[in-house]
Design a binder for these strands. Structure first.
Lengths: 339, 339
DNA sequence: GTGAAAGCGCTAACAA
DNA sequence: TTGTTAGCGCTTTCAC
């Protein structure tokens, strides 16, 4: 029980394979009547073109290779947007995952073997020299990772702006004692820290500026909470949502009312931050826009169109949920005394 | 700047393409010296075999097509296990995602076009007739979904056993008033409900048996919590983790102490259930085992080996965290009075 | 508008 | 052990 091939359709329709090929691709050069008849036969025979054979001959694959990390929920969200954008641009995606036992090298090699026309890498951790080496072979677009290489395109969020928005929100609520739990040397951490500092300055709050060292995990947030207890602020912006939940947990265990006594803002709008139980105010990245830009840049390079910016920086926006409110004692802001 | 091909390597090494092919595949039929020389040249020229051309000719792709849903964190976890298992079996994976705007039909069609040798589908929602139709074209293994079709292989968790374990744990702690918030008509819900009933019977608790209708989301758990308030049990087993957190949230808002007043067990061991903030006792599926069996079954069908079970049912295990404890008033089990 | 022929990079018979 | 030949399913000249 062989598969249906172009030749089968050609035989059945009584035309040449070349003609069927033309029709199937929607290429010009076939009579309307023939076209219809071929299409009908193809449908009846349930013919599916063999992508591989097609691209073997044409040299093109119309394939965008995507490397993502299964451990990062955010990556999976971006995948959704990327499928949309790629579809609209007429490209297919081939996915290659990074897992605890499958490194970036392996993932990228597979993509190369699949003859993708461009690589879209989600926050790659490999050195930028490695990225540049890849870029010599194929167009490379990195997402959520800044790279200073002429040949590597970048699509990322304006993390400084995100932190800035968080502080603006808090300051607007009346907070002045706003601390920041940072992400150390992690990608994006420096920017988020900077955005915090800039916003504090802009609100004339430089004198309070307080940065506690944190990290990407719950433990980091929990540790930071302990440090904050020494001289509690009324609000904290945290490097990411996971760290923020770690902090929240310690807070609630110590019966610190959130947001009554302390407001908390996370970063990433991770799916769990939406849980009623966590209900975290957080900074959301504009996934659809990022995906759109990434595909646009990849196609841009593939088709060798001149112009356009190598780096695209997308603005995030704040998602206000239940962990932020006016500071304690603010006029008209007290919740009913809990008792 | 063309890619390096077999012919290039052959020229450079002064042998025929066929021989290079043999060497590259590690197939028998080449002298040790030649082999070494060819390998050396290939390495120097950075030769990468073209997978597509290879399989176009050989008719085999050594490819397992995987359909997963980006919205389901559990699916992503299983992916990790599947990569491991496939690698060991000498197969590659091609991934095709289901997203809010990309349905199962699209995902599967792409897999078919990629000429995968078998399809591994993560909890497909399509009717079993559709599954059977697919199975006529390629071996199909469904995971986390029971299907009664001779041609469709199934790898799933023993959900009845999972529920049973949850009840055993609770009963062992001294609970007698144990309720179950179910998943309605969702896949797996009937089994989990049954496991609860069987376990209750086994512990002589049939008289208390109490099933509240729920669902897969947080809202469902929250709604169920309201119902439970009428005649509170001392413990609840919930259809899944998400629903359990919805329930937990309502409980804590109403100052019901968990696990002091009420113990809660979820199902799935979702990544968020691990968060210190949620710290949910839950039933975990054995991902590595499931992945291993899925690949084994797929390969089994591909290579047309006779024997083996069409359906593989894997035992889950309970992960005990912070939402379960002895019932209120149980000897020696009271926490310090919270005051 | 349509068909014949060549060949993409590779593997599989077979011959040498 | 090695090379020759044919051809996987398709696209692409280039004739007709």
């Amino acid at each position: 029980m062989r598969r249906t091939t172009l030749a089968d359709v050609a035989d059945e329709a009584g035309v040449s394979v070349a003609l069927v090929s033309i029709v199937m691709r929607g290429a010009p050069g076939a009579g309307a009547a023939t076209r219809e008849r071929v299409l009908e036969v193809a449908r009846r025979l349930d013919y599916r073109p063999d992508t591989r054979a097609r691209l073997l001959r044409s040299g093109r694959s119309q394939l965008l290779g995507v490397m993502f990390d299964v451990r990062h929920p955010f990556h999976v969200d971006v995948l959704t947007g990327l499928y949309d954008a790629a579809g609209q641009a007429g490209y297919q995606l081939t996915l290659s995952a990074v897992t605890p036992r499958r490194d970036e090298q392996t993932a990228v090699t597979e993509l190369m073997q699949d003859r993708c026309e461009a690589l879209v890498l989600f926050s790659p951790r490999m050195p930028s020299a490695a990225l540049a080496a890849l870029a010599e072979q194929r167009p490379v677009v990195t997402m959520m990772r800044a790279v200073r290489r002429r040949d590597v395109d970048v699509v990322r969020t304006d993390d400084a702006l995100g932190s800035h928005q968080a502080v603006d929100h808090l300051a607007g609520l009346g907070h002045t004692r706003i601390a920041h739990v940072d992400g150390g040397a992690l990608p994006g951490a420096a920017e988020r820290r900077l955005g915090y500092q800039q916003a504090m300055a802009q609100h004339g709050l430089t004198s309070y500026e307080k940065i506690v060292s944190g990290g990407p995990g719950e433990e980091d947030g929990a540790r930071a909470a302990a440090v904050l207890f020494g001289d509690p602020p009324t609000a904290v912006t945290v490097f990411n949502d996971l760290s923020a939940t770690g902090l929240l947990d310690v807070l609630r265990r110590h019966r610190v009312d959130v947001p009554g006594d302390l407001s908390v803002v996370g970063y990433d709008d991770s799916s769990f931050s939406r849980l009623a139980h966590i209900d975290l105010t957080t900074v959301a990245q504009d996934i659809a826009a990022m995906a759109g830009h990434a595909v646009a840049r990849a196609v841009h390079r593939i088709e060798d169109t001149p112009g356009g910016d190598r780096e695209t920086i997308v603005a995030p926006h704040l998602v206000i949920r239940g962990t932020t409110a006016a500071p304690p004692g603010a006029p008209g802001s007290d919740p009913l005394p809990t008792g």
